[in-house]
């Protein structure tokens, strides 16, 4: 009897189990417990939420392993953690600690400005950000088991996540509608691996799940992303930078599941307090835009 660990089925399957759920950024055990109690499907353990990373400046790195460990000990739901783009050792360290998923994330300062991790070589599954199908397909080609829109992290502004989700899905629909003899040129134009486009054409959809991330601030934002075809939602700064994190977390979880039940969304949005303030994307200079990181 042969046992297979870290296979594509096992890694992509793990991401499938998160579907319809909300993954919340947390910086300590207390926040992790709040997230779990509210119904999060996983937590992302990190040192600072993206909006604080913006304020702090400097180089943003993998979280202190003590924080990751503290979160892992606090909850029974899966724990994810972020590694810098291309930082082989941060990723291996997180894998050795037993985190359930690694986010090779543009929220942190990239360690390599040319190459992403070869994620197929790891036992642990990876999630990566994307703005279009070219990025999405390159990350899948490298072995990502899950995608998320990049959006614009830490802004509390949904506009970039909407742009990225619509773009990826429109490009997926275009590939599905193409003849097979048109795929190689499309691969060239997108900078996408041919095999990934072929898989999309054959299956009629992306071969991995695609969550929304980067700017989700309210229950209605989460529901909007589900309406646009997201498989689930990451909420970074949106929960613990809100006035009442417990209520916000519960409301976003419900709005994600029942995203077309508008009476329910209205009900859960009442008296949950003030969301994260938010930033107009046009006020960010290009060097402050995290979505430009990654290649």
């Amino acid at each position: 009897m042969s046992i297979l660990k870290g296979s594509e089925v096992v890694k992509r399957g793990m991401a499938l189990m998160q579907k319809g759920g909300v993954i919340m950024d947390v910086v300590n055990a207390e926040q992790a417990k709040i997230a779990e109690a509210a119904g999060a499907v996983a937590v992302m353990a990190l040192e600072r939420v993206p909006s604080d990373i913006r304020v702090a400046g400097g180089v943003a790195r993998m979280a202190d392993p003590r924080i990751v460990e503290e979160v892992m000990n606090a909850v029974s739901i899966p724990v994810m953690a972020k590694a810098r783009i291309g930082h082989i050792v941060e990723a291996r360290v997180l894998e050795s600690m037993g985190v359930d998923f690694i986010d090779e994330s543009e929220v942190l300062t990239p360690a390599d400005e040319e190459f992403h991790l070869l994620k197929s070589q790891y036992t642990v599954p990876f999630v990566c950000g994307c703005r279009d199908l070219g990025e999405a397909a390159r990350r899948i080609g490298e072995g990502a088991a899950m995608l998320r829109t990049k959006g614009e992290p830490g802004t509390g502004n949904i506009v970039e996540a909407v742009r990225h989700m619509r773009k990826v899905n429109a490009q997926v629909r275009a590939v599905v509608a193409m003849n097979e003899d048109e795929l190689m040129t499309e691969a060239k134009n997108l900078g996408a691996p041919f095999e990934v486009l072929l898989a999309i054409k054959q299956e009629g959809r992306l071969p991995v799940v695609n969550f929304a991330a980067g700017g989700v601030a309210t229950p209605a934002d989460a529901a909007l992303m589900m309406e646009l075809g997201a498989d689930g939602v990451f909420v970074g700064s949106g929960i613990f930078k809100a006035e009442n994190p417990e209520k916000f977390a519960r409301a976003i979880v419900q709005a994600t599941t029942h995203y077309q039940d508008y009476a329910l969304i209205s009900e859960v949005s009442k008296e949950i307090g003030v969301p994260i303030k938010g930033i107009d994307i046009r006020q960010l200079v290009p060097s402050e835009r995290m979505q430009e990181r990654g290649w």
């Binding site: 009897m1 042969s2 296979s7 096992v10 793990m14 037993g98 985190v99 359930d100």
Partner: peptide
């Protein structure tokens, strides 16, 4: 059976 890195497939 442990955390995700211990997940597996088997006949």
């Amino acid at each position: 059976f442990g955390r995700q890195v211990e997940s597996f497939e088997v006949p």
